[in-house]
Amino acid sequence: VAKRKCPDHGLDLSTYCQEDRQLICVLCPVIGAHQGHQLSTLDEA
């Protein structure tokens, strides 16, 4: 199974943004649109 990539940063989608209910990469909460959002690992989601 191919991993999905972040459209903004090109990295694997490895984190779940609880606020926006979507998968994001590790850079999205650091330099992207998900700064300050509640996050979960994929195992927790």
Rank of each mutant, 00 (worst) to 15 (best):
V1P: 06
V1G: 06
V1E: 09
V1Q: 05
V1Y: 04
V1R: 03
V1W: 04
V1H: 04
V1T: 08
A2F: 13
A2T: 15
A2C: 14
A2E: 15
A2V: 10
A2L: 10
A2Y: 11
A2I: 14
A2K: 15
A2D: 15
A2R: 06
A2W: 05
A2G: 10
K3M: 11
K3I: 14
K3Y: 06
K3E: 13
K3D: 14
K3F: 06
K3H: 07
R4W: 05
R4K: 13
R4A: 08
R4H: 04
R4L: 08
R4P: 03
R4G: 09
R4Q: 08
R4N: 15
R4V: 07
K5L: 05
K5V: 06
K5R: 05
K5M: 12
K5T: 06
K5S: 06
K5Q: 05
K5I: 04
K5Y: 04
K5W: 03
K5C: 05
K5N: 06
C6V: 00
C6E: 00
C6R: 00
C6I: 01
C6T: 01
C6A: 00
C6N: 01
C6D: 01
C6W: 00
C6G: 00
P7D: 03
P7A: 11
P7S: 07
P7Y: 04
P7N: 02
P7L: 06
P7M: 10
P7C: 05
P7T: 15
D8E: 14
D8G: 04
D8R: 10
D8S: 11
D8Y: 15
D8V: 13
D8Q: 14
D8W: 07
D8T: 15
D8I: 14
H9T: 00
H9A: 00
H9W: 00
H9S: 00
H9M: 00
H9L: 01
G10E: 08
G10S: 08
G10M: 08
G10W: 03
G10L: 06
G10P: 01
G10N: 15
G10Q: 11
G10Y: 06
G10K: 07
G10R: 05
G10F: 04
L11H: 14
L11R: 12
L11S: 04
L11G: 05
L11T: 05
L11P: 01
D12S: 06
D12H: 13
D12C: 03
D12P: 10
D12T: 08
D12N: 08
D12E: 12
D12L: 05
D12V: 07
D12G: 07
D12F: 05
D12R: 04
L13N: 03
L13Q: 12
L13W: 05
L13E: 06
L13C: 10
L13R: 07
L13V: 07
L13T: 08
L13F: 05
S14W: 05
S14Q: 12
S14K: 13
S14M: 09
S14N: 15
S14G: 13
S14A: 12
T15Y: 12
T15M: 07
T15H: 10
T15I: 06
T15R: 09
T15D: 12
T15F: 03
Y16T: 14
Y16N: 05
Y16D: 04
Y16F: 08
Y16K: 08
Y16P: 03
Y16L: 09
C17P: 01
C17L: 00
C17Y: 01
C17H: 01
C17M: 01
C17W: 00
C17R: 03
C17G: 02
Q18N: 12
Q18R: 09
Q18K: 14
Q18Y: 15
Q18L: 08
Q18W: 05
E19M: 06
E19D: 14
E19C: 08
E19G: 07
E19A: 09
E19P: 04
E19H: 10
E19Q: 08
E19S: 09
E19K: 10
E19I: 08
D20E: 10
D20M: 02
D20G: 03
D20K: 03
D20L: 02
D20T: 04
D20I: 02
D20P: 00
D20N: 03
D20V: 02
D20F: 00
D20W: 00
D20Q: 03
R21N: 14
R21G: 14
R21A: 12
R21Q: 15
R21K: 15
R21Y: 12
R21I: 03
R21D: 15
R21H: 14
Q22F: 03
Q22V: 10
Q22H: 09
Q22D: 11
Q22T: 15
Q22C: 14
Q22A: 11
L23G: 12
L23K: 10
L23T: 12
L23A: 14
L23W: 12
L23M: 12
L23Q: 15
L23D: 15
L23C: 06
L23I: 05
L23E: 15
L23V: 09
I24M: 10
I24T: 09
I24R: 05
I24S: 03
I24D: 03
I24K: 06
I24F: 05
I24Y: 04
I24C: 09
I24Q: 03
C25A: 00
C25W: 00
C25K: 02
C25I: 00
C25V: 00
C25S: 01
C25F: 00
C25E: 01
C25P: 02
C25L: 00
V26M: 11
V26I: 07
V26G: 12
V26T: 15
V26E: 15
V26R: 15
V26Y: 10
V26H: 11
V26N: 15
L27N: 15
L27A: 09
L27H: 08
L27V: 05
L27T: 04
L27I: 06
L27R: 14
L27S: 11
L27D: 15
L27K: 15
C28T: 00
C28G: 01
C28E: 01
C28R: 00
C28M: 00
C28D: 02
C28F: 01
C28A: 00
C28I: 00
C28N: 01
P29R: 09
P29W: 04
P29G: 07
P29Y: 07
P29E: 11
P29I: 05
P29T: 11
P29C: 04
P29K: 12
P29N: 08
V30C: 08
V30S: 12
V30P: 03
V30N: 09
V30M: 12
V30I: 10
V30F: 06
I31M: 13
I31R: 12
I31A: 13
I31W: 06
I31V: 14
I31N: 15
I31F: 06
I31H: 14
I31C: 07
I31K: 15
I31T: 15
G32H: 03
G32C: 02
G32N: 03
G32E: 03
G32T: 03
G32R: 03
G32V: 02
G32I: 01
G32F: 01
G32A: 03
A33Y: 07
A33E: 10
A33R: 11
A33D: 08
A33L: 07
A33W: 05
A33F: 04
A33H: 10
A33V: 09
A33Q: 11
H34E: 02
H34F: 01
H34C: 06
H34Y: 02
H34W: 00
H34V: 01
H34K: 02
H34L: 00
H34M: 02
H34Q: 02
H34R: 02
H34T: 02
Q35F: 05
Q35Y: 08
Q35C: 07
Q35T: 10
Q35M: 11
Q35A: 09
Q35P: 03
Q35K: 12
Q35D: 05
G36A: 06
G36S: 06
G36N: 12
G36T: 04
G36C: 05
G36W: 03
G36F: 04
G36R: 05
G36V: 03
G36K: 06
H37F: 00
H37I: 00
H37W: 00
H37T: 02
H37K: 02
H37M: 02
H37D: 02
H37A: 02
H37S: 02
H37L: 01
H37C: 09
H37R: 02
Q38H: 13
Q38G: 12
Q38K: 14
Q38N: 14
Q38F: 08
Q38I: 09
Q38C: 09
Q38T: 14
Q38A: 10
Q38S: 13
Q38W: 04
L39R: 11
L39G: 10
L39E: 11
L39N: 09
L39S: 11
L39M: 14
L39I: 11
L39W: 10
L39P: 10
L39Q: 14
S40N: 06
S40C: 11
S40A: 12
S40D: 10
S40R: 10
S40E: 11
S40T: 08
S40P: 09
T41R: 13
T41W: 06
T41K: 14
T41H: 07
T41A: 13
T41Y: 07
T41F: 04
T41D: 13
L42I: 12
L42M: 12
L42G: 15
L42T: 15
L42Q: 15
L42E: 14
L42K: 14
D43Q: 10
D43F: 05
D43Y: 06
D43V: 09
D43M: 08
D43C: 09
D43K: 08
D43L: 06
D43R: 08
D43P: 12
D43S: 11
D43T: 10
E44I: 06
E44Y: 04
E44G: 12
E44R: 10
E44M: 09
E44Q: 10
E44L: 07
E44V: 08
A45C: 09
A45M: 11
A45T: 13
A45L: 07
A45Q: 14
A45K: 09
A45W: 10
